[in-house]
Amino acid sequence: MQAYLKLDHIDKTFTRGSATTEVLKDINLTIEKGEYVSIIGHSGCGKSTLLNIVAGLTGTTNGCVLLENREVNSPGPDRAVVFQNHSLLPWLTVYENVRLGVDKVFAKTKSRAERDAWVMHNLSLVQMAHARDKRPSEISGGMKQRVGIARALAMEPKVLLLDEPFGALDALTRAHLQDSVMALHQKLGNTILMITHDVDEAVLLSDRIVMMTNGPSARIGEVLEVPLARPRKRLELATNPAYLKCRQRVLEFLYERHSFVEAA
Protein backbone atom coordinates (compact mmCIF):
# COMPACT_ATOMS: atom_id res chain seq x y z
CA MET A 1 0.00 0.00 0.00
CA GLN A 2 1.34 3.37 -1.01
CA ALA A 3 1.27 5.80 1.88
CA TYR A 4 -0.26 9.15 0.98
CA LEU A 5 -0.99 10.29 4.48
CA LYS A 6 1.01 8.60 7.21
CA LEU A 7 0.61 8.92 10.96
CA ASP A 8 3.91 7.73 12.32
CA HIS A 9 4.16 6.62 15.97
CA ILE A 10 2.11 9.49 17.30
CA ASP A 11 1.93 10.01 21.07
CA LYS A 12 0.07 12.91 22.60
CA THR A 13 0.31 13.95 26.21
CA PHE A 14 -1.52 16.93 27.64
CA THR A 15 0.10 18.66 30.58
CA ARG A 16 -1.90 20.89 32.85
CA GLY A 17 0.12 22.09 35.77
CA SER A 18 1.71 19.04 37.29
CA ALA A 19 -0.92 16.63 35.95
CA THR A 20 -0.12 14.90 32.70
CA THR A 21 -2.61 12.87 30.74
CA GLU A 22 -1.54 10.60 27.95
CA VAL A 23 -4.33 10.85 25.41
CA LEU A 24 -2.94 8.98 22.43
CA LYS A 25 -0.33 6.28 22.41
CA ASP A 26 1.60 4.99 19.45
CA ILE A 27 -0.87 5.75 16.68
CA ASN A 28 0.24 4.33 13.34
CA LEU A 29 -1.92 4.66 10.28
CA THR A 30 -1.33 4.90 6.58
CA ILE A 31 -3.96 6.18 4.20
CA GLU A 32 -3.93 5.76 0.45
CA LYS A 33 -4.78 8.44 -2.02
CA GLY A 34 -8.52 8.54 -2.63
CA GLU A 35 -9.29 6.41 0.37
CA TYR A 36 -12.14 7.17 2.76
CA VAL A 37 -11.08 6.30 6.30
CA SER A 38 -13.21 6.72 9.40
CA ILE A 39 -12.01 6.84 12.95
CA ILE A 40 -14.58 5.62 15.44
CA GLY A 41 -14.44 5.41 19.19
CA HIS A 42 -16.23 6.39 22.34
CA SER A 43 -16.30 10.03 23.26
CA GLY A 44 -13.20 11.13 25.12
CA CYS A 45 -10.98 8.59 23.40
CA GLY A 46 -8.95 11.28 21.69
CA LYS A 47 -10.23 10.89 18.16
CA SER A 48 -10.82 14.63 17.80
CA THR A 49 -7.33 15.25 19.17
CA LEU A 50 -6.02 12.90 16.51
CA LEU A 51 -7.83 14.83 13.78
CA ASN A 52 -6.52 18.12 15.15
CA ILE A 53 -3.01 16.66 15.03
CA VAL A 54 -3.45 15.73 11.37
CA ALA A 55 -4.87 19.19 10.71
CA GLY A 56 -1.85 20.69 12.46
CA LEU A 57 -4.01 22.55 14.97
CA THR A 58 -2.50 20.53 17.81
CA GLY A 59 1.11 19.45 18.04
CA THR A 60 2.28 15.92 18.76
CA THR A 61 4.33 14.87 21.77
CA ASN A 62 6.16 12.19 19.79
CA GLY A 63 5.92 11.05 16.22
CA CYS A 64 4.82 12.95 13.15
CA VAL A 65 2.32 13.25 10.35
CA LEU A 66 3.64 12.72 6.83
CA LEU A 67 1.71 13.89 3.80
CA GLU A 68 3.27 12.69 0.53
CA ASN A 69 6.38 11.83 2.58
CA ARG A 70 6.75 15.38 3.86
CA GLU A 71 6.25 16.20 7.49
CA VAL A 72 3.36 18.54 8.23
CA ASN A 73 3.12 20.13 11.65
CA SER A 74 1.21 23.34 11.10
CA PRO A 75 -2.28 23.92 9.74
CA GLY A 76 -2.74 24.49 6.04
CA PRO A 77 -5.28 24.35 3.24
CA ASP A 78 -3.83 21.05 2.01
CA ARG A 79 -5.61 19.49 5.01
CA ALA A 80 -8.90 21.39 5.03
CA VAL A 81 -11.19 20.67 7.95
CA VAL A 82 -14.97 20.48 8.05
CA PHE A 83 -15.69 21.33 11.67
CA GLN A 84 -18.42 19.70 13.69
CA ASN A 85 -20.20 22.97 14.39
CA HIS A 86 -19.66 24.31 10.85
CA SER A 87 -17.60 27.30 12.12
CA LEU A 88 -18.81 29.61 9.38
CA LEU A 89 -17.99 33.24 10.05
CA PRO A 90 -21.36 34.82 10.87
CA TRP A 91 -20.49 38.25 9.50
CA LEU A 92 -19.74 36.90 6.02
CA THR A 93 -22.22 35.63 3.48
CA VAL A 94 -22.14 32.03 2.30
CA TYR A 95 -20.21 33.14 -0.77
CA GLU A 96 -17.72 35.20 1.23
CA ASN A 97 -17.10 32.34 3.65
CA VAL A 98 -16.02 30.09 0.80
CA ARG A 99 -14.23 32.92 -0.99
CA LEU A 100 -12.05 33.62 2.07
CA GLY A 101 -10.19 30.34 1.66
CA VAL A 102 -10.20 30.47 -2.13
CA ASP A 103 -8.63 33.93 -2.14
CA LYS A 104 -5.76 32.72 0.02
CA VAL A 105 -5.11 29.39 -1.67
CA PHE A 106 -5.42 30.56 -5.27
CA ALA A 107 -4.11 34.11 -4.81
CA LYS A 108 -1.44 33.59 -7.43
CA THR A 109 -2.77 30.81 -9.60
CA LYS A 110 -6.27 32.01 -10.39
CA SER A 111 -7.57 35.35 -11.62
CA ARG A 112 -10.35 37.20 -9.83
CA ALA A 113 -12.98 35.92 -12.25
CA GLU A 114 -11.66 32.37 -12.04
CA ARG A 115 -11.81 32.45 -8.25
CA ASP A 116 -15.37 33.72 -8.39
CA ALA A 117 -16.30 30.89 -10.76
CA TRP A 118 -14.48 28.37 -8.56
CA VAL A 119 -16.41 29.49 -5.46
CA MET A 120 -19.69 29.17 -7.32
CA HIS A 121 -18.64 25.79 -8.71
CA ASN A 122 -17.99 24.48 -5.20
CA LEU A 123 -21.22 25.92 -3.88
CA SER A 124 -23.08 24.13 -6.68
CA LEU A 125 -21.32 20.88 -5.79
CA VAL A 126 -23.08 21.00 -2.42
CA GLN A 127 -26.29 22.46 -3.93
CA MET A 128 -25.88 25.75 -2.10
CA ALA A 129 -25.38 28.12 -5.04
CA HIS A 130 -28.86 29.55 -4.51
CA ALA A 131 -27.93 30.78 -1.02
CA ARG A 132 -24.77 32.64 -1.99
CA ASP A 133 -25.83 35.95 -0.47
CA LYS A 134 -27.37 34.57 2.69
CA ARG A 135 -25.66 34.82 6.03
CA PRO A 136 -25.07 31.70 8.13
CA SER A 137 -27.76 32.76 10.59
CA GLU A 138 -30.32 32.69 7.78
CA ILE A 139 -29.79 29.08 6.71
CA SER A 140 -30.49 25.73 8.38
CA GLY A 141 -27.96 23.57 10.20
CA GLY A 142 -27.67 21.13 7.30
CA MET A 143 -27.13 23.98 4.86
CA LYS A 144 -24.44 25.47 7.08
CA GLN A 145 -22.63 22.16 7.08
CA ARG A 146 -22.91 22.00 3.28
CA VAL A 147 -21.27 25.40 3.08
CA GLY A 148 -18.61 24.16 5.50
CA ILE A 149 -17.95 21.26 3.13
CA ALA A 150 -17.86 23.61 0.13
CA ARG A 151 -15.38 25.84 1.93
CA ALA A 152 -13.11 22.88 2.61
CA LEU A 153 -13.47 21.42 -0.90
CA ALA A 154 -12.79 24.79 -2.52
CA MET A 155 -9.30 24.81 -1.03
CA GLU A 156 -8.54 21.69 -3.09
CA PRO A 157 -7.14 19.87 -0.09
CA LYS A 158 -4.94 16.82 -0.46
CA VAL A 159 -6.78 15.34 2.48
CA LEU A 160 -10.23 16.36 3.58
CA LEU A 161 -10.67 16.12 7.35
CA LEU A 162 -14.21 15.71 8.64
CA ASP A 163 -14.65 16.19 12.39
CA GLU A 164 -17.97 14.55 13.23
CA PRO A 165 -19.45 16.57 10.40
CA PHE A 166 -22.99 15.27 10.79
CA GLY A 167 -23.02 15.00 14.58
CA ALA A 168 -25.11 18.09 15.18
CA LEU A 169 -27.73 17.32 12.52
CA ASP A 170 -31.07 15.55 12.74
CA ALA A 171 -31.28 12.03 11.35
CA LEU A 172 -32.94 12.90 8.03
CA THR A 173 -30.61 15.80 7.23
CA ARG A 174 -27.70 13.63 8.27
CA ALA A 175 -28.66 10.86 5.84
CA HIS A 176 -29.09 13.41 3.09
CA LEU A 177 -25.67 14.92 3.71
CA GLN A 178 -24.03 11.50 3.97
CA ASP A 179 -25.34 10.75 0.49
CA SER A 180 -23.97 14.08 -0.72
CA VAL A 181 -20.54 13.38 0.74
CA MET A 182 -20.54 9.91 -0.83
CA ALA A 183 -21.45 11.40 -4.19
CA LEU A 184 -18.71 14.02 -3.87
CA HIS A 185 -16.15 11.39 -2.90
CA GLN A 186 -17.21 9.36 -5.92
CA LYS A 187 -16.98 12.33 -8.23
CA LEU A 188 -13.84 14.05 -6.98
CA GLY A 189 -11.89 11.12 -5.54
CA ASN A 190 -10.76 13.02 -2.44
CA THR A 191 -8.80 11.41 0.30
CA ILE A 192 -10.99 11.71 3.36
CA LEU A 193 -10.35 11.15 7.04
CA MET A 194 -13.54 11.32 9.09
CA ILE A 195 -14.14 11.24 12.82
CA THR A 196 -17.45 9.74 13.84
CA HIS A 197 -19.23 7.96 16.65
CA ASP A 198 -21.98 6.62 14.45
CA VAL A 199 -21.45 2.98 13.46
CA ASP A 200 -23.83 3.03 10.48
CA GLU A 201 -22.27 6.18 9.16
CA ALA A 202 -18.79 4.69 9.43
CA VAL A 203 -19.73 1.49 7.60
CA LEU A 204 -21.77 3.27 4.95
CA LEU A 205 -19.14 5.80 3.99
CA SER A 206 -15.75 4.27 4.67
CA ASP A 207 -13.29 2.07 2.86
CA ARG A 208 -11.65 1.35 6.19
CA ILE A 209 -12.77 1.89 9.76
CA VAL A 210 -10.19 2.59 12.42
CA MET A 211 -11.50 1.62 15.83
CA MET A 212 -9.91 3.25 18.82
CA THR A 213 -9.69 1.89 22.33
CA ASN A 214 -10.86 3.97 25.24
CA GLY A 215 -8.65 6.67 26.65
CA PRO A 216 -6.51 7.56 28.41
CA SER A 217 -3.66 6.26 26.29
CA ALA A 218 -5.99 5.40 23.44
CA ARG A 219 -4.56 3.18 20.75
CA ILE A 220 -5.80 1.89 17.46
CA GLY A 221 -7.56 -1.28 18.51
CA GLU A 222 -8.53 -2.66 15.16
CA VAL A 223 -8.75 -1.63 11.52
CA LEU A 224 -11.65 -3.01 9.52
CA GLU A 225 -11.81 -3.09 5.72
CA VAL A 226 -15.29 -2.49 4.39
CA PRO A 227 -15.56 -4.72 1.32
CA LEU A 228 -18.54 -3.01 -0.25
CA ALA A 229 -18.56 -1.86 -3.86
CA ARG A 230 -19.26 1.77 -4.66
CA PRO A 231 -21.54 3.49 -5.36
CA ARG A 232 -23.30 2.30 -2.24
CA LYS A 233 -27.02 2.59 -1.79
CA ARG A 234 -28.33 3.09 1.71
CA LEU A 235 -31.48 1.03 1.20
CA GLU A 236 -29.82 -1.92 -0.55
CA LEU A 237 -27.13 -2.12 2.09
CA ALA A 238 -29.63 -2.56 4.88
CA THR A 239 -29.95 -6.23 3.94
CA ASN A 240 -26.45 -6.77 2.53
CA PRO A 241 -24.66 -9.50 4.53
CA ALA A 242 -21.22 -7.89 4.14
CA TYR A 243 -22.60 -4.61 5.45
CA LEU A 244 -24.25 -6.31 8.40
CA LYS A 245 -21.08 -8.21 9.17
CA CYS A 246 -18.99 -5.04 9.22
CA ARG A 247 -21.55 -3.34 11.38
CA GLN A 248 -21.50 -6.31 13.73
CA ARG A 249 -17.72 -6.21 13.98
CA VAL A 250 -17.65 -2.54 14.88
CA LEU A 251 -20.45 -2.89 17.39
CA GLU A 252 -18.69 -5.82 19.03
CA PHE A 253 -15.52 -3.85 19.29
CA LEU A 254 -17.21 -0.81 20.77
CA TYR A 255 -19.69 -2.43 23.10
CA GLU A 256 -18.10 -5.73 24.14
CA ARG A 257 -14.39 -5.44 24.06
CA HIS A 258 -14.06 -1.74 24.72
CA SER A 259 -17.32 -0.70 26.22
CA PHE A 260 -17.27 2.81 27.54
CA VAL A 261 -16.95 2.52 31.29
CA GLU A 262 -18.15 5.98 32.18
CA ALA A 263 -21.10 5.85 29.79
CA ALA A 264 -23.41 4.22 32.31
Binding site: G76, V81, F83, L89, W91, L100
Partner: peptide, 26 residues
Protein backbone atom coordinates in the same frame (compact mmCIF):
# COMPACT_ATOMS: atom_id res chain seq x y z
CA UNK B 1 -14.26 31.41 19.63
CA UNK B 2 -11.45 28.93 19.06
CA UNK B 3 -13.38 27.77 15.97
CA UNK B 4 -12.72 31.07 14.19
CA UNK B 5 -9.05 30.84 15.08
CA UNK B 6 -8.96 27.30 13.70
CA UNK B 7 -10.61 28.45 10.48
CA UNK B 8 -8.05 31.23 10.15
CA UNK B 9 -5.24 28.75 10.81
CA UNK B 10 -6.46 26.28 8.18
CA UNK B 11 -6.94 29.04 5.61
CA UNK B 12 -3.53 30.41 6.67
CA UNK B 13 -4.48 34.03 7.11
CA UNK B 14 -1.48 36.18 7.90
CA UNK B 15 -1.57 38.27 11.11
CA UNK B 16 -2.84 41.38 9.33
CA UNK B 17 -5.60 39.47 7.55
CA UNK B 18 -6.46 37.71 10.80
CA UNK B 19 -6.80 41.10 12.47
CA UNK B 20 -9.01 42.66 9.81
CA UNK B 21 -11.03 39.62 8.72
CA UNK B 22 -11.50 37.71 11.97
CA UNK B 23 -10.60 39.72 15.05
CA UNK B 24 -12.28 43.01 14.27
CA UNK B 25 -15.58 41.58 13.01
CA UNK B 26 -15.71 38.95 15.76
Amino acid sequence: PQDYRNVAAVVQLNPLEFFTKIMIPA
